[in-house]
Design a protein around this nucleic acid. Structure first.
Ligand SMILES: [Mn+2]
Length: 576
DNA sequence: CATTATTAAGGA
DNA sequence: TCCTTAATA
């Protein structure tokens, strides 16, 4: 069943966030965002502070279109960039507790997703500034209420088409040039070729795509008007082609790729512009098979690909032919939170210093968790540290119980334990170059902050009327006084500190005070909640009742049924 | 003097 | 669970 997919990418995103912070100073200016100078020790500068750096400055990670016009490129150092463009304004990312603080960009990105959700039934957040939308339903609805010729007229007025001369020219640009903003990338100019598209005979699916383009244009307009971010988009029958189409015309433009235009679009498209082939795999394919374009790969036979060791031949060919059809996932928010820092030239040697940084990371992550769980009633159950030295990179993971805890301590303790798991007996000469901490594997929490008593007293009748006060939590209705009361009595009689009863932490019921038989009867998520984080008996996460596992369920199901599945645009497989 | 910080996913 | 690859700014 064919879908209508829109792929939206925000223009010069970090720069746009900075302009939004200080429009009077930055709007319309050649602007670049750079990393902070990691090798210097300087005071933190939060998002609302002046972060303009006049000299020095690290590598550029985002460049405004005004600056691109002057020859400033991503990945240049700030000093280098000022030579190309003396008027360039360089802003460093916000810093907090001695490290980059990217929350400004993440939070704006979440606001964008919220708006886009009004326009599409299925929304997949793909990165801090990219979103894929399945707008099939919305497009169909539009065609039900509006004459298709009118829809087509509207779409043509606001869109490029992939088979126009300027689009095909853009398709031939190198991956690198396309990413940094190639020549000829400028605000929308009406194009004769695009106009001609209006005179063509459209198939019924063409009309659906055109309707999708109108929906996407409305969505982009809403983002622009309500948040001040301009964005570009591609509209096509699948996610991969929509993304490729999105890259053709920026900024503030959108491109429609009709199915009949896919072959021309891909014919001369550099192979590494296909999503998933931008790295080693694409390079190996290029060199081993002597091809440079997606069209070139499409002409290679399956057996030759297999003989060359590319086991994923079918998917490679599907990508090269633009038929790879990975559905838009229904996932509008993050699956993991992380915090990390590079200690360039000054590796961490001492265990206690590493501990301090991990605590720092944990606090940052926990702030995000609190925010997230208030909105989505979920919390992560895995903690992972990542440690890079000159010679090695390792990750270590363990389960953690966070629930509605008000403290980052469970994460801190896990992180410190994991660090020791890696360090062994060493307390010095650790030589950590990159240290990172992350949380993942979210589970749904009960719908409000009631925690244990809420879990124990819930049933279909009770669920609609949730306890809203701590008094209610402490006095479950007579009917439900089963395990809940047993536990409650045990806790309050055997523990002197009855004042902690209202706390939403697992310390409320020290596991040592719970009758093992009663404990054994509890559902796994309650066991997890009751578990003191030092008694790490439960090794697998509790099954989720809500929908934060929806996607994982789908993935599991897919793995069972299909032999070769892809989860992203592409599932690169290494040749043997 | 100097990329850095995240996120997601696949394979073993 | 751990490692690797690819992607974004
Ligand atoms: Mn972007």
């Amino acid at each position: 069943m064919s879908r209508v997919v829109g792929f939206i990418d925000l223009d010069a995103y970090y720069c746009a966030c900075e302009v939004k912070q200080k429009p009077s100073l930055l709007a319309g200016k050649p602007l670049a965002v750079c990393m902070y100078e990691t090798w210097k020790k300087s005071p933190d500068r939060s998002a609302d502070m002046d972060r303009i750096v006049k000299s020095g400055g690290a590598g550029l990670i985002a460049v405004s279109y005004e600056a691109r016009a002057m020859g400033v490129k991503r990945q240049m150092s700030a000093n280098e960039a000022r030579k190309a463009c003396p008027e360039l304004i360089t802003v460093m990312v916000p810093t907090k507790n001695g490290k980059a603080d990217l929350s400004l960009y993440k939070e704006n990105g979440e606001k964008v997703v919220e708006i886009l959700q009004e326009f599409a039934g299925i929304v997949e957040k793909r990165s801090v500034d990219e979103v894929a939308l399945d707008v099939t339903d919305a497009a169909q609805k539009l065609l039900e209420t509006t004459p298709k010729e009118l829809v087509a007229r509207q779409a043509v007025n606001v869109s490029h088409f992939a088979d126009s001369e300027i689009s095909l020219k853009a398709s031939k640009i190198s991956h690198e040039a396309a990413r940094r903003g190639h020549e000829g990338q400028h605000e929308y100019t009406k194009n004769d070729d695009d106009e001609k598209n209006h005179l063509l005979k459209y198939s019924s699916f063409d009309y659906l795509l055109l309707a999708g383009a109108v929906v996407i244009n409305n969505a982009r307009k809403a983002v622009r008007e309500r948040l001040g971010f301009s964005c570009s988009a591609g509209i096509a029958a699948n996610k991969m082609i929509a993304k490729v189409g999105c890259g053709l015309h920026k900024p503030n433009q959108q491109t429609i790729v009709f199915p009949r235009s896919v072959a021309v679009l891909l014919k001369d498209l550099p192979l590494n512009r296909l999503p998933g082939l931008g790295g080693d795999l694409g390079n190996r394919i290029s060199s081993q098979l002597n091809i440079t374009t997606a069209g070139g790969l499409a002409n290679i036979s399956r057996s030759i690909l297999l003989n060359a060791g590319f086991q994923d031949a079918d998917n490679l060919l599907a990508a090269a032919n633009g038929t790879l059809d990975e559905p838009v996932k229904n996932r509008a928010n993050y699956k993991s939170f992380g915090s990390s820092k590079t200690f360039y030239k000054h590796p961490i040697t001492n265990l206690t210093i590493a501990d301090q940084w991990l605590s720092n990371f944990a606090q940052e992550i926990f702030d995000r968790i609190k925010n997230d769980r208030n909105q989505r009633n979920r919390a992560p159950t895995n903690v992972t540290i990542s440690i890079t030295t000159d010679k090695s990179h390792v990750t270590r993971t363990e389960k953690v119980h966070i629930g509605w805890s008000d403290s980052p301590q469970p994460i801190v303790r896990s992180a410190h334990r994991l660090l020791r798991r890696w360090a062994g007996t060493r307390t010095a000469h650790l030589d950590i170059v990159v240290l990172g901490l992350g949380v993942s594997n979210f589970i749904d929490l009960p719908a409000n902050k009631a925690s244990v008593m809420d879990l124990l007293t819930r049933n279909p009748l009770h669920q609609s009327k949730k306890p809203s006060s701590s008094a209610e939590i402490m006095q479950p209705s007579k009917k439900k006084r089963t395990i809940a009361e047993l536990l409650y009595q045990q806790a309050t009689t055997s523990t002197k500190k009855t004042t902690t009863v209202g706390k939403k932490d697992s310390s409320f019921f020290p596991s040592s005070n719970i009758d093992p038989e009663v404990f054994a009867q509890l559902p796994p998520e309650i066991k997890a909640e009751l578990l003191d984080d030092r008694t790490r008996l439960l090794r697998q996460s509790a099954p989720s009742l809500g929908n934060s596992h929806l996607e994982q369920r789908q993935v599991k199901k897919k793995k069972k049924t299909a032999t070769t599945t892809i989860d992203s645009f592409f599932a690169p497989r290494r040749p043997r």
